[in-house]
């Protein structure tokens, strides 16, 4: 394969894209070691590195698979539906989901080892393990967050339609929820950026969770101008990337690279939606 490099270790062979360099490796290890202190440049390397590893290949006897295929076949396929079912059985998903996520993640090493894809004789096999860990954590945290928001919106008597997360077809729908004829997505911050393709955002609004100044659960909604207007959002204050959360709950307008988004804290946004849906909007 052009542009790829190969390492042979006994019967297990890895082909790692040559574009995946030491900086990508080190960034991934930094992420796995402790992601709370990564700067933007390192995050950029993590995302790029994971994208590159998706096309890395592992050959075992007669079978060659990309890392993405290995993850789909051995991790996501067997574990995703079980995980979602357990999430939906929780009474307090925010409190219980981290331990469920971890319980499933602990299976990854054995699953790869039993499939003959993880061995100390093949140094690159830890990259496959790291790739699977990264994606499993992103996936599982993402859906735990989605279940949390889904329940919270229901409890707040918000009228919305949700995609079916119990099956893969539903999970792959272009939008997670619809309300007020607006398409929305619910994604954790890490998962969102890995999932999002380049170019314009496809949906109208996005609910996400950010880490800021020791607060791990800062929930915000960012949206396009028409989505903000649809809930009678009103005036916004200009903000910068560095100070964006300092102004909350005041709605912030961020302009970068000719693109504008309105960012508001989740509780304020919910009140606006509820008001609009009850016909009390301006």
């Amino acid at each position: 394969m052009i542009g790829l490099a190969m390492s042979q270790e006994q019967s297990l062979q890895f082909v790692i894209p040559t574009e995946f360099n030491q900086a990508h490796h080190d960034a991934l290890m930094a992420y796995l070691s402790d992601n709370r202190n990564l700067d933007t440049d390192v995050w950029r390397l993590v995302y790029k590195g994971i994208d590159l590893l998706a096309e890395a290949q592992v050959s075992n006897q007669d079978t060659t698979q990309t890392f993405r295929q290995v993850y789909d076949e051995f991790i996501r396929g067997p574990l995703a539906n079980q995980f979602i079912e357990q999430l939906l059985e929780t009474s307090n998903v925010a409190a219980e989901s981290p331990q469920i996520t971890a319980r499933f993640a602990r299976q990854i090493r054995n699953v790869l080892h039993e499939a003959g894809l993880l061995t100390r004789d093949a140094p690159f096999s830890v990259l496959l393990q790291g790739y699977c860990l990264y994606w499993w954590q992103s996936f599982s945290r993402g859906y735990a967050f989605e279940v949390y928001i889904m329940r919270d919106l229901k409890a707040a008597n918000i009228d919305f339609q949700m995609h079916d997360i119990r099956n893969q077809r539903g999970r792959f729908s272009p939008a997670d929820l619809v309300m007020l004829n607006l398409l929305g997505d619910i994604k954790t911050s890490v998962y969102f950026l890995q999932w999002q393709s380049r170019g314009e955002l496809p949906n109208d609004f996005y609910i996400t969770r950010l880490y800021e100044k020791g607060r791990e659960r800062t929930l915000v909604v960012f949206q396009k101008r028409h989505a903000w207007d649809a809930i009678d959002g009103g005036n916004t204050n200009p903000g910068t990337l560095e100070t964006i959360l300092d102004f909350l709950p005041t709605p912030i307008e961020i302009r970068q690279r000719g693109i504008m988004l309105v960012v508001v804290d989740y509780e304020t946004w919910k009140q606006m939606v509820r008001k609009k849906q009850s016909g009390q909007g301006a």
Binding site: N35, W43, R141, F145, L210, T218
Partner: peptide
């Protein structure tokens, strides 16, 4: 939860 900073 392993989230990332708002600015990044």
């Amino acid at each position: 939860f392993g989230e990332m900073p708002a600015s990044s």
